[in-house]
């Protein structure tokens, strides 16, 4: 019985975790149809996996217990070297399992490429999301407004994100709305998401991008259609315009608070077509990345942080409308 201890402990641990954790985990608590579809797929696969574990563990426990070397050992057969029947069985069963998993997977892969089924007939809201170390710039081309590090979206309407990056490769991820996609310089990728419930959801870059990666985050506020329209038109009317000078400073590596502008950078640059823009802007501002552990590197970092503060102050006006 002592030999079975690891299996028992393990099963117990797993059960405790499963029971206590499941509903709290944000990936399994989606707030939109995209996340919902992925959650269903995940749960479907988890049942298969638990079944597989159960079979393997039961078989292991049985064989190890029964054929351990002890007195009254029975059934020893040192030349038992295979069985066509058994081996055929365990070639076929995994094949069946893989097919059972592959069909819904491929289905989901294809359906996630487009807007959610339930809101197919609605025109999606288009938002350009641009990552620049370590901020997110969101442009609403139709509304002609731009935000930094936060998003407002209407509920029950698909949002088409056009993702790109000004420098390192980032990954745009709002776990409660759905899975992530990479944002790459000189490239544009598309991701459909939708919120079915009002609320604020955390979004982030999940792909490592260097020193400031940990706080490379943003907030997504899902609201009613009317509230969204109101916010967009007020922002357009009240927020300051984004100047090229301000935008250049945004290109410096660093963090800023949430910001709002009544025009977009798409007027003069699309990072999906111009991968060099951010590096050029840094050159224009006389910024050069230094060795992080050197004195020069530490001074450079301090200078950048001051630059970021000044930038935040230059936009004080729009802030009152951010929330």
């Amino acid at each position: 019985m002592r030999r079975l201890k690891p299996f028992l402990t393990f099963g117990l641990m797993m059960a405790v975790f499963m029971l206590s954790g499941c509903s709290d985990m944000i990936v399994l608590d989606p707030k939109g149809p995209v996340g919902e579809e992925q959650k269903d797929l995940i749960m479907y696969s988890i049942w298969f996996m638990l079944f597989i574990l159960l079979v393997v563990y039961a078989l292991t426990a049985f064989i190890v217990y029964k054929y351990r070397d002890h007195k009254n050992h029975k059934g020893y057969d040192p030349d038992n070297e295979g069985s066509h029947l058994l081996e055929t069985i365990w070639w076929i069963i995994p094949i069946i399992i893989v097919i059972a998993l592959a069909i819904p997977t491929v289905n989901s892969i294809y359906s996630l490429e487009g807007p959610p089924e339930e809101s197919k007939d609605q025109k999606p809201l288009v938002i350009h999301a641009t990552s620049v170390n370590w901020k997110w710039v969101f442009s609403y081309p139709e509304q002609d407004i731009e935000t930094v590090n936060y998003l407002h979206i209407p509920e029950d309407r698909p949002v088409l994100f056009k993702l790109t990056s000004a420098d390192s490769m980032a990954s745009f991820w709002v776990p409660q709305l759905g899975g992530q996609k990479y944002a790459m310089a000189g490239m544009e990728t598309e991701l459909y998401l939708q919120a079915d419930e009002q609320g604020t959801y955390e979004g982030r870059n999940s792909n490592f991008t260097g020193e400031g990666f940990t706080n490379h985050t943003f907030d997504v506020m899902a609201m009613s259609d009317a509230e969204f329209e109101k916010w967009a038109s007020e922002t357009k009317a009240d927020a300051p315009e984004l100047s090229k000078g301000q935008y250049d400073k945004l290109m410096l590596p660093g963090h800023v608070k949430q910001m709002t502008f009544s025009s977009t950078h798409l007027d003069w640059v699309d990072h999906a077509k111009n991968a060099e823009y951010a590096l050029d802007a840094r050159k224009r501002l006389g910024y050069e990345e230094k060795l992080p552990h050197s004195k020069a590197g530490k001074e450079e970092k301090k200078k950048r942080e001051e630059e970021m503060k000044k930038l935040e102050e230059s936009e004080s006006h729009g802030d009152s409308h951010a929330h």
């Binding site: 563990y57 892969i109 999940s206």
Partner: peptide, 25 residues
């Protein structure tokens, strides 16, 4: 055998691309 199987089945879960968008990174 006991532990690798867990790595194996979660590997299959990660292989399901549509779900992987949530596990990735």
């Amino acid at each position: 055998i006991v532990n690798f199987v867990i790595g194996g089945v979660t590997g299959v879960m990660l292989a399901m691309a549509a779900a992987d968008y949530q596990y990735h990174n």
